[in-house]
Design a binder for these strands. Structure first.
Length: 810
RNA sequence: GCGGACGUGGCGGAAUUGGCAGACGCGUCGGACUUAGAAUCCGAUGGGAAACCUUGCAAGUUCAAAUCUUGUCGUCCGCACCA
């Protein structure tokens, strides 16, 4: 078969007949929205990772289609972003030009893959008709009070020359370029994702997502239930601390503020001011180096002030220390050295009192003792344990007006402004009189100008574009400046799956009706690296849009699958420096798109991935050759012996229906490797039956047809061709996926493993549905059993119907 | 440090969820067809001469463990002073 010609033939036919498009009219079929994470138009060509994401998932989509679903599978490009801009800085090619060119080549390649993408719904996030609505999203959130601007210590990547969201910092390092991130106090735009912390956490329980991913999100949101306690200072200021261990409040020996705490300076006495200022400076610098290590030696400084422990009136010194984070809880903690390792280390170093107020229930209390235990030396609360003690203390604090129960989350608000060029401009105007004013919706989009000097200089490239920056205030009409920042590209990708439902709507981001009909996404497939970024942001935006009345569902992605990673043949991650990059093109050229896709499905467990192997590629190609040969041979047979149905036919019928039932199950669970293994078995069974001199050829032909239908989602071009060769007129993808005939799967006898005292003695054909007694007596009658029964008697017999019988003798 | 996942032939990987470990395929070996090779087809293939031994290692529960429990080693990932 001329694979190339066959691929082109069918791709052209599919396009002409609009076979790949979602049927907007069909109402009787249930919809199924299959989505692959859209790609960033980098470099020029699709890499193995793209094929591995899109190929098998497309086979899943085709499978669902043949099962009778109205499948929607769109594709688009996440086109804004840093790489294009960095490339521009290096080469001088404008990001818009390089991006558009890259998209063009990638479109052609994606089409050559033969996936049933509905290109009529294509999205490119860098186009005005799309980013207009990204800006609209920003304004909608702003109006709802979910977008705000504030000065805060933020993450700054010195290499990318922009601020980053918390989620984009991995271990203190920029997620993109690996540069150490520094901290800066800057005024930036944030989305109030924290308003949804609880729902984002709870919603995970309902989702059909990998547990690991759900746990990563849980971990990232990190809910902690505790208590806020107010310590009043001598000068009347009040310090609120957050603690999960209010049962230790009688053991507080000092209070610590983060160096950035707003009260840090006002609480410092004249005597200590020099030292404190020096420490704050030191801490700011230390922040930049590493405040990451928990093994780092604790440092701090005394402010000279004292506050009062609300439960016992004790006078308590106030310290500053950088082991307390300004951004979590209240930025202040009560230190209980006896029952917290960090406080213990600090107190030991600065010779602060260590007061034991918890005792281990088994009597052995070695400090610092950080487990739950019996409260001691705490007046009314003595004798209470753990949660019980915490409840009692919390309600006491509430009663005296000094605090009470409080829930905290580790999740921070999403910082969305970026000091870069290639993104959607933030639709805000800064007026000297009116402050930050949103751009009226009618004026959207705020167009990204083309002629911009985008060499980074620490400020936003747009800031230097006079024409862009200069504008008038929509409120007062006076002279004003545009916001020079652009939106994080994760904002663009946090709603694209909604736009696909209504991609050409010029009046709104999408119609509520269309989105409610097509969403949520039923099956979403993409890399695991987005667990705490894209996948979290998209959930947030969906919930926010729901609360604003734009849609009626709670979660965007009902089911999530992560594909694994294909490594180089040497087992390392593919990279140019390793010299182990496998380029799909050569293989597609040599073996065809179907063979390449099929190898990716068969050679790995889909969610695991693994090292590339050339021999496996050849093996799959051989399998496809055998398929073709078999079909060509059997198609020539005259249909005869239609009523012949003996043991051989029964065996082939079993193989056929066994394959049908297993393939359907395995395709559903993305177990593509085993699905294809079952098809190989069926092909072997077909070959075996074909070797018989006397055979029922019309039955054989039907079986071969079923085989082609089973394989069609995985090898779409070749199976279309074979389907046509078999004399069929309509596309194989308009056929129903075969359904198994349960009768054919019923066997009279099955091979049982016969065990005596749990050791296998022999194997025997016994009634498939025999009763306990029946199987037992048949087993006992077996010669191999009789032999070993001499002088022994049966104590017990275990029968697993259809599989095994275990005779316990003694 | 905390949390999670994983560990099965020479290799990629299966195992109806506690029921014959090693499906399917690669590789290897043998054979057929060939002057020969390539391709193709057929057969064998966890180890061991055998009793038997085998799912990282060591215990345990069970009639029965790759699967459950505990400990231990190793690999990978996530979080990292979160009070």
């Amino acid at each position: 078969m001329d694979v190339k010609a066959v691929e082109q033939k069918w791709q052209a036919r599919w396009e002409k007949s609009k076979l790949n498009q979602f049927d907007k009219k069909a109402t009787s079929k249930p919809k199924h929205y299959v989505l692959e994470m859209f790609s960033y138009p980098s470099g020029a060509k699709l890499h193995v990772g793209h094929w591995y994401n899109y190929g098998p998932t497309d086979s899943y989509a085709r499978f669902k289609r043949m099962q009778g679903y109205n499948v929607f599978q769109p594709m688009g490009f996440d086109a804004f972003g840093l790489p294009a801009e960095n490339y521009a800085i290096k080469t001088g090619v404008h990001p818009k030009d390089s991006t558009e060119k890259n998209i063009e080549t990638m479109e052609a390649q994606l089409k050559a893959m033969g996936a049933m993408f509905d290109w009529s719904a294509e999205i490119k996030t860098c186009e005005e008709e799309y980013y207009k609505w990204t800006q609209w999203m920003f304004l909608a959130l702003y109006k709802k009070g979910l977008a705000y601007r504030k000065e805060a210590p933020v993450n700054w990547c010195p290499s990318c020359q922009t601020v980053l969201a918390n989620e984009q910092v991995e271990g203190g390092v920029c997620e993109r370029c690996g540069t150490q991130v520094t901290r800066k106090n800057l005024t930036q735009w944030f989305f109030k994702i924290t308003d949804y912390a609880e729902e984002l956490l709870k919603g995970l329980d309902e989702l059909d997502w990998p547990e690991k991913t759900k746990n990563m999100q849980r971990n990232w949101i990190s809910k902690s239930t505790g208590c806020e306690i107010e310590f009043e200072c001598e000068n009347g200021e009040k310090i609120r601390v957050f603690t999960t261990r209010c049962d230790t409040v009688f053991g507080v020996s000092y209070v610590v503020l983060a160096p950035e705490h707003p009260l840090a300076l006002s609480l410092t006495t004249a005597e200590h001011i020099e030292e404190v200022k020096k420490y704050i400076e030191y801490a700011a610098k230390a922040n930049e180096i590493d405040r990451l290590s928990s093994t780092r030696e604790k440092t701090g400084v005394f402010t000279g002030s004292y506050c009062t422990n609300p439960v016992n009136g004790k006078k308590i010194p106030i310290y500053l220390a950088d082991y307390v984070l300004a951004s979590y809880g209240t930025g202040a903690v009560m230190a209980v050295p006896a029952h917290d390792e960090r406080d213990y280390a600090f107190a030991s170093k600065y010779q602060l009192p260590i007061v034991k107020v918890i005792e281990s229930q088994n009597g052995d209390t070695k400090l610092p003792y950080c487990e739950d235990g019996i409260v001691v030396s705490s007046i009314d609360f003595d004798g209470l344990v753990g949660e019980e003690a915490r409840n009692a203390v919390a309600s006491h604090l509430a009663k005296i007006g000094k605090g009470g129960k409080k829930v905290n989350y580790r999740l921070r608000d999403w910082l969305v402004s970026r000091q870069r060029y290639w993104g959607a401009p933030i639709p805000v105007i800064h007026c000297p009189k009116c402050g930050a004013v949103p751009v009226p919706e009618a004026d959207l989009p705020v167009k990204l100008p083309y002629d911009v000097e985008f060499k980074p200089n620490g400020s936003s490239p747009l800031a230097n574009h006079e024409k862009f920056m200069h504008t008038t205030c929509p409120v007062c009409g006076g002279e004003a400046q545009r916001d020079p920042d652009t939106l994080d590209t994760f904002v663009c990708s946090s709603w694209y799956y909604l736009r696909y439902a209504d991609p050409h709507n010029a009046a709104a981001p999408f119609s509520k009706e269309k989105v409610n009909k097509l969403l949520p996404v039923d099956t979403y497939v993409g890399g695991a690296e987005h667990a705490c970024m894209h996948l979290l942001y998209a959930r947030f935006l969906t919930k926010a849009l729901r609360d604003m009345g734009y849609l009626d569902f709670n979660e965007p992605f009902l089911r999530l699958v992560h594909q694994g990673v294909i490594l180089g043949p040497d087992g390392n991650r593919m990279s140019k420096s390793h010299g182990n990059v496998v380029s799909p093109d050569e293989y597609v050229e040599k073996y065809g798109s179907d063979a390449f896709r099929l190898y990716l499905m068969f050679g790995f467990s889909y969610t695991e991935g693994g090292p590339w192997n050339d021999d496996g590629m050849k093996a799959i190609s051989k399998f496809l050759d055998r398929v073709e040969k078999t079909v060509l041979k059997i198609k020539e047979y005259k249909t005869e012996n239609g009523s012949l149905y003996g043991a051989n036919e029964k065996a082939l019928d079993y193989a056929r229906n066994y394959a049908i039932s297993k393939v359907a199950r395995d395709m559903e669970t993305f177990s593509f490797n085993t699905a294809i293994a079952r098809m190989m078995e069926l092909l072997n069974a077909i070959g075996k039956y074909d070797a018989f001199a006397e055979k029922n050829t019309s039955f054989l032909k039907d079986t071969v047809k079923d085989f082609v239908l089973l394989l069609a989602p995985c090898a779409p071009h070749i199976c279309e061709e074979l389907w046509e060769i078999l004399g069929e007129k309509n596309s194989v993808f308009l056929q129903n996926f075969p359904k198994e005939n349960p009768d054919a799967l019923v066997l009279d006898e099955k091979e049982y493993a016969v065990q005596m005292n749990s050791k296998i003695v022999c194997k025997a054909m016994l009634p498939a549905n025999g009763s306990q007694d029946e199987i037992q007596s048949l087993a006992l009658a077996l010669p191999e059993v009789q032999e070993r029964m001499e002088g022994k008697s049966l104590k017990k017999c275990i029968v697993v119907t259809g599989r095994l019988v275990n005779l316990i003798v003694g």
